[in-house]
């Protein structure tokens, strides 16, 4: 849990942190989509440099991003390997049964590898530089049109933000119950699988009881404060769009242009 970087917020004061969450979310999603249209090494070089530039602007150390990739590196290498082995074309170096290693295959493998790494880097930029609650607001804002179709967008957003809000409490509670049972002589991480499963009961049951209790009390509070699902409500948290946000989106357009040019001219 300690090593998981993707999905965590890293407070800092940078130009990227200050961007509007909606702009960042749209740009990140667009960027990821764009990655799938690049079919030339030069294109990857461009977006790769762009990504590094964005990472630099967050003022967060490179090692943090690398750490974010680490837990997934084997999966990525495996996927890239598969592409290498199953793609033919160009000069064939090795051929063994259904597997071939060809120049075309090596390029495709490299592209796959780059694509994954860049997806992780850019998502990490998004979550490291955006407060979870701002991200929730952004999702809420972007899903707004669905409200007309009867989708409970506000409920969904509130649910998401309450869950985020209670993660520290849940961690805390888990730690407390574990400590309490340890103090009563439970030794975790010892014994057979069945024994270990049994040891979970004294943790899970109290956690379950307290979570239920918490949910009930919160429902009361929301009820008394007149929260009603599906009712129109105003928002205290305001997302504000700055010129820099428009510029960020314009850069995406620029990047698209570069990709198109590279794709068509460098065949």
């Amino acid at each position: 849990m300690k090593s998981l970087i993707l999905g965590r917020y890293f407070p800092n004061d940078s130009i990227i942190h200050r961007l509007d969450a909606r702009a960042k979310l749209v740009a990140a999603l667009y960027f990821i989509g764009l990655l799938f249209f690049i079919d030339h090494g030069l294109g990857y070089l461009f977006v790769g440099l762009f990504t590094l530039g964005v990472m630099y602007l967050t003022k967060i150390r490179l090692s943090v991003f690398i750490k974010g990739v680490r837990p997934l590196i084997f999966l990525i290498l495996f996927a890239a390997m598969m592409r290498v082995l199953f793609t033919g074309g160009g000069e064939v170096f090795v051929s063994w049964g259904p597997f071939t290693i060809s120049s075309q295959g090596l390029w495709v493998g490299l592209f796959t590898f780059m694509r994954f790494i860049l997806i992780i880097f850019i998502s990490t930029v998004l979550t490291l530089s955006t407060k979870p609650v701002d991200l929730t607001d952004a999702i809420n804002a972007l899903l707004k049109p669905l409200r007309k179709l009867g989708v409970p967008v506000d409920d969904f957003a509130l649910m998401l933000s309450i869950s985020l809000r209670f993660i520290p409490n849940l961690l805390d509670e888990t730690q407390r119950v574990m400590d309490a049972q340890r103090a009563r002589g439970v030794i975790f991480g010892e014994g057979t699988i069945v024994e270990q499963m049994k040891k979970l009961v004294p943790i899970v049951l109290p956690l379950f009881a307290s979570s239920l209790n918490r949910a009930e009390e919160m429902a009361d509070v929301m009820d008394v404060k007149n929260y009603q699902s599906g009712e129109k409500r105003t928002h205290f948290r305001q997302l504000t769009w700055h010129t820099s946000d428009s510029i960020a989106l314009l850069m995406m357009v620029g990047l698209t242009a570069v990709v198109i040019v590279v794709n068509y001219t460098m065949v």
Binding site: R176, A180, P202, P206
Partner: peptide
């Protein structure tokens, strides 16, 4: 612990 009844199971 504080609120020890929360460890009953």
């Amino acid at each position: 612990f504080q609120f020890p009844e929360r460890q009953l199971f």
